[in-house]
C-alpha cells in the first residue's frame, strides 16, 4: 500500500500556493509580518489566537489551514491524525527575542508568552488546538529539507498502523527568511472522490523533494 498526498500548501516570500496553484501573491512587503497579516485577514478565519503566536507558529498555522481547507476533517478520527514537521533553525527566531529580553540586567524582562515559543513543537500544539487533533506528533530537525527523513518517519507510522492520515512537511523561519511546505497524506486513493484523485501525488521521497524544489 502506498500513501498519497491529497492536498498541499506552499508559502515562500511573496507567494502562497495551494495544490500547486497560486492562491496569493504580494511582492510589496519588507517583513514577514507585513506579508502574512493581510493574507491571514483575507482568509477570514476568525481566530484571534493567531495574533499571539510567534512568527514560526504563524507560518505553520496558516500553511496547515490552507491544507485543511481542502478536506473535511470530520471524516477522520482525530485521535488518529498524525502531525510530523521538520525544520532547520528550530525556534531560533524566537530564541533570539527571549535572549534579548535577558541580556541586560537593567532591562531584564523575560516574558512567558515569548519563552513558551522557544520550542519548535509549539507550532504543532497550535495546530492540534485549532482542530482538536490528538494523534501522534513529532518535530524533527535537519540542516536542509530532507524528503527521505519525512517520508521514512511518516511511512512507518502508517505501516505500523499508528495513524489513519498525517499532516507533514517543512516549516522554517528565521527573521525575514521563511518557507513552508505542508502536505496531507492519506493511505490511498480508493476512498477519494474524482477531484481529489486528480490532485493526488505519490507520497515518495522523490515527489516530496520535487514539491520542495519547485516552491
Amino acid at each position: 500500500m502506498e500513501q498519497v498526498i491529497s492536498a498541499y500548501a506552499q508559502i515562500k516570500p511573496g507567494q502562497v500556493r495551494v495544490n500547486g496553484r497560486i492562491e496569493y501573491s504580494d511582492e510589496n512587503f519588507i517583513t514577514f509580518a507585513e506579508f502574512i497579516k493581510p493574507f491571514f485577514k483575507s482568509l477570514n478565519l476568525g481566530y484571534p489566537k493567531f495574533y499571539k503566536m510567534d512568527p514560526l507558529s504563524k507560518l505553520g498555522f496558516i500553511a496547515s489551514e490552507l491544507v485543511f481547507k481542502q478536506l473535511n476533517l470530520d471524516s477522520y478520527d482525530r485521535k488518529r491524525v498524525g502531525i510530523v514537521i521538520a525544520n532547520s533553525s528550530s525556534s531560533l527566531d524566537t530564541d533570539i527575542i527571549h535572549q534579548q529580553s535577558i541580556s541586560n540586567r537593567s532591562e531584564y524582562f523575560p516574558s512567558p508568552s515569548v519563552f513558551v515559543y522557544t520550542l519548535p513543537n509549539i507550532m504543532i500544539g497550535e495546530i492540534c488546538i485549532r482542530h482538536q487533533l490528538r494523534g501522534e506528533n513529532a518535530f524533527l530537525i535537519s540542516e536542509r529539507f530532507d524528503g527521505r527523513l519525512l517520508t521514512k518517519y511518516v511511512n512507518e507510522l502508517f505501516q505500523q498502523n499508528r495513524i489513519d492520515v498525517c499532516l507533514t512537511g517543512w516549516v522554517d523561519l528565521l527573521k525575514e527568511d521563511f518557507e513552508a511546505l505542508l502536505m496531507f497524506v492519506e493511505p490511498g486513493i480508493w476512498e477519494m472522490n474524482a477531484e481529489a484523485r486528480e490532485i493526488a501525488l505519490p507520497f515518495s521521497e522523490k515527489t516530496v523533494n520535487e514539491l520542495y524544489t519547485i516552491m
Binding site: K79, G125, C128, R134, G135, R162
Partner: peptide
C-alpha cells in the same frame, strides 16, 4: 506512543485523557 492534548500550549490537559491514550497505546 505519543499523543497531543489539543488544549493549551503551556498547560496540561484538564482530564489527563490524552496522556492516558499514549499509555494505553
Amino acid at each position: 506512543a505519543t499523543s497531543n492534548d489539543a488544549n493549551h500550549i503551556s498547560g496540561p490537559s484538564r482530564t489527563g485523557e490524552e496522556l492516558a491514550l499514549a499509555m494505553q497505546k
